[in-house]
Design a binder for these strands. Structure first.
Lengths: 116, 116
DNA sequence: TTGACATGCAGCCATATGGCTGCATATAAT
DNA sequence: ATTATATGCAGCCATATGGCTGCATGTCAA
């Protein structure tokens, strides 16, 4: 689980997943095209994705073909994101109530500075 | 978006979100309890969550109260995870087909080593 | 006013991360 | 057999990260 979040934290790796979504079974070489980094770096990224089981690998001769494995994402969805977004209306309500209650003592001028 | 993934990549930060899920509106001090790290470190983590807009902040006097903001998670869900998990059956099918096709020339003994 | 409490800010340090290069190995093609 | 191609592995380096400490600031209570 931690490995999956860590793997998703990098832009390049998310891009690789995107490219595999468009066309699965691409080789390392193919995935290197249009990437501004070296093959070895791409390979490292793919290992990270592999360890997180976000991609599966099939060797065909000397070529390594990569495939998406959506299961970890589904898992994250189920065990993590749903948990928070389900009760989103509750959360907003709580926040609203809290804001109203805030008008008591002390400063409250820089509340809700969500533009940072 | 990148900030959200980066924020979620850390175990401590996910724990903080969990704790805020259980009880919203906790102060920095409260969130420090049961944490094995210093207040300043917790504060840093919360800033990361704040920048990613995963939490909102309300000052009440000298206390800083934290609230969950589930929107970025919903956004990730919508724009990212759904995309991959929707066609999961397709993906598995593709993989299956690929495996079958693999039985051609060259080595294929370490295929599907997803236990790594 | 003065002292206690909640938090912020700056800087230090060890480790993790993500890029690179150079060389090794395995498969394919001639 | 020899060469070309696809990939792996090890090590280097700069920067990011996540912990810490020390001190500053703002707010509440006597």
């Amino acid at each position: 689980m931690d490995a999956v979040f860590k793997a998703l934290a990098d832009k390049t790796r998310r891009r690789l997943l995107d490219r595999l979504f468009i066309e699965q079974g691409q080789t390392l070489g193919q995935l290197c095209d249009e990437m501004a980094i070296r093959r070895q770096s791409v390979s490292k990224h793919l290992s990270v994705l592999e360890r997180a089981e976000l991609v599966s690998v099939i060797w065909r001769g000397r070529e390594k073909h990569y495939y998406l494995n959506p299961m970890p994402l589904a898992e994250i969805n189920r065990r993590w994101i749903d948990k928070f977004t389900q009760h989103s209306s509750d959360a907003v309500l709580n926040l609203k109530r809290a804001v109203e209650k805030t008008d008591g003592p002390g400063r409250h001028e820089d509340s809700s500075d969500d533009t940072t």
